[in-house]
Design a protein around this nucleic acid. Structure first.
Lengths: 207, 207
DNA sequence: AATCAAATGTACCGATCGGTACATATTTAA
DNA sequence: TTAAATATGTACCGATCGGTACATTTGATT
């Protein structure tokens, strides 16, 4: 085991708290004082553990992806549940997360993407945002492709168009969550959007 | 006429340029150097003409509302055009504006609303954002109420729900615009969302 | 022409920004 | 027990933040 005084704080928990600060205030809006206060440590401890503000942000982005973005994907694959319902469950879970009052409103990634277009964020942090944003689109696109192949969805649909459509809706609910809209109100929007779409397979060509 | 040296810059144009800087970088991300450089003036001139950063932002918000938000509303009232097409025209014009390469991507108000939830913006600027954000929702809600009364839209719809639905979609396209999506891609999302909705009046009760 | 009001440019203010030097405290390895 | 290694807290760094004092320039009013 390596020598030296051992860390007095939980690194994972500190990262989680840093993520909350970035989530709420954005990259530029989150000062080191905000961050270290939220993390419950002081600056030298933060720099020793995470490098600097930019690399802390990158770690926080990864943490968000693993802890909040990826787990929702599971709901797309529940056995025995029709495609339409799985999509509703997926979107509903994400909106519930966007409105969870124990956490900042909205979506960390949506927030970061919006800020990233302003050229106020350093390069490697931009890359992390781009990767995180691309992940959901890639995943959803592949998911819909599979569903088309499984004949759960008409091949008239373009899988990527569908993915971008739902992600756009989720960017919208994220913004509306920060705008003060309730989970209930946003859920009904999700239902409206999904219910109007026809989630039917192609008509069988057998006579 | 009042005495003294006269202003060497166009105040309206300077405000417009300040608006672009806030639009691109957000309130926190836009430094006074960014702003005055974009406006083509120096700091004392800005302070003399607009007060301070906060009041400049409030003026920029008002300017955006008058120049970009309100004009789109006109498309909701084109004579002789069916409701559904008017809504498509309205949404299409806004998305085109969000993707106009001669201006910052996305929507000034959506951007500001997202930032406002982070407690990094002073109070009166928050009020301006809230007012601007509320304006579109109020306007759209009243518009759909009128259309229901004119029997262009089923009274099964709740006017405010419909307004929030479309504004959520527009918040989403604004975010996706900043995420690099093309106008073409976002237009097709708009079409998808609108075409699936039934814009029909109530069935006549006459036999 | 003289006077005064307003705009401009420079040069600066205190506060905060991200980041770090350094002394001290704590731990393991030798 | 001692030495090397790591963590912590204080106190600070230069740069930038929003904002302004002040001297100068300009132009309308008298």
């Amino acid at each position: 085991m390596k020598g030296g005084r051992q860390r007095e704080f939980d690194k994972e928990l500190a990262l989680e708290n840093a993520m909350y600060v970035f989530w709420k205030k954005g990259y530029v809006g989150a000062s080191l004082t905000d961050l270290t206060t939220g993390m419950g440590i002081n600056k030298p401890s933060m720099y020793a553990a995470f490098g600097n503000k930019e690399s802390l942000f990158i770690s926080a982005t990864d943490h968000y992806l693993e802890k909040y973005a990826k787990p929702a994907n599971r709901l797309l694959h529940t056995d025995g549940v029709p495609l339409k319902q799985r999509v509703i469950d997926y979107l509903t879970a994400i909106v519930a997360n966007q409105c969870d009052s124990s956490k900042p409103c909205g979506c960390f990634i949506s927030m970061s993407v919006t800020e990233a277009a302003g050229e106020t964020i350093p390069e490697k942090a931009l890359e992390a945002i781009s990767t995180a944003s691309g992940f959901s689109e890639t995943y959803l696109t592949q998911f819909f492709q599979q569903e088309i192949q499984l004949d759960n969805l008409s091949s008239q649909y373009d899988a990527n168009d569908l993915a971008v459509y739902f992600l756009t809706l989720l960017h919208g609910t994220a913004a509306q969550s920060r705008n003060g809209k309730s989970a209930k109100q946003l859920q009904s929007i999700i239902n409206t959007a999904v219910n109007q779409l026809s989630f039917e397979p192609d008509a069988k060509t057998n006579p």
